[in-house]
Design a protein around this nucleic acid. Structure first.
Length: 243
DNA sequence: GCGACAG
DNA sequence: ATCTTGTCGC
């Protein structure tokens, strides 16, 4: 039944042998890995400007009861926003949702879905945070390091940072800060709607991540990458019985 | 010490 | 995340 938030489990309780690359199964191991990933992220690259991005992939996960899940990856043409290809992975997770450790719950299945794509996208957009994270190692940092691709996050709700409301017009933004350090932006993608929260993961700077997010969200609050992946995962979960 | 806390 | 109907507005 997996571990629960706040629960510890020592080595001999694991079912999998503990190799050097073993995926963490306890909170302590997960935190230790994040502290190494934080240093492996490329936070200096400007990354591709929107005009240089040909394809961009969105990833998301839909959950059933008991740990069952469907991860989806959808690649879009960055210029037209047409779907180029889709991939789903039906699996499960035993890692619980713990704020700050979301990557350990979602990424194994997300990477499996990405592996199902025939072509590597130029950029990946996550549903969650990058460096706007207590250890600067959110989902997008983790996935960027794992894939070696430019990666950033677009989240829907605030996490652990300070920010002021941006102007009401599409394109307005304000900084997300942690102890005075800028870790992302609250970005208004449509006039008068709640802002989304953009933070880089690895291999792309905040300027390009912001510009690409706006380009990916011409009509709705969330970028089309996230919407497409969200819908694909949900559709597939419903079709596969559970939900 | 007790909450709050991406999805 | 997920559970869920109608409803206000363009």
């Amino acid at each position: 039944m997996g571990i629960r938030a706040g629960e510890r489990r020592d080595r001999r309780d694991r079912r999998e042998p503990s190799g050097p690359q073993a995926w963490p199964t306890t909170e302590a191991e997960a935190v230790a890995l994040q502290e190494r990933l934080r240093d492996a992220a490329d936070l200096t690259a400007e990354g591709p400007a929107p005009d240089q991005v040909r394809t961009v992939a969105g990833v998301d996960v839909a959950y059933a009861d008991g740990g069952g899940l469907v991860a989806a990856a959808v690649t879009l043409d960055a210029a037209t926003l047409d779907v180029v290809e889709e991939s789903v992975h039906v699996g499960r997770t035993d890692f619980p949702y713990v704020p700050g450790l979301l990557a350990f719950r979602e990424l194994p299945s997300v990477t499996a879905a990405l592996d199902g794509l025939a072509h590597r996208p130029d950029v990946i957009v996550c549903d969650g945070y990058g460096i706007a994270h207590p250890r600067r190692a959110g989902l997008a940092v983790h996935l960027g390091v794992l894939t070696g691709l430019p990666c950033f996050g677009v989240a829907k709700t605030p996490f652990l940072f300070d920010f002021a409301q941006p102007g009401r017009e599409r394109g307005s933004f304000s900084p997300l800060t942690i102890e005075g350090e800028e870790v992302g932006r609250a970005l208004r993608t449509q006039d008068g709607v709640k802002p989304v929260f953009v933070s880089v993961g690895s291999g792309i700077g905040l300027e390009h991540a912001t510009a690409l997010t706006l380009r990916l969200a011409p009509t709705y609050r969330q970028p089309e990458t996230t919407r497409r992946a969200d819908h694909l995962a949900g559709r597939h979960l419903a079709a596969s019985g559970q939900g």
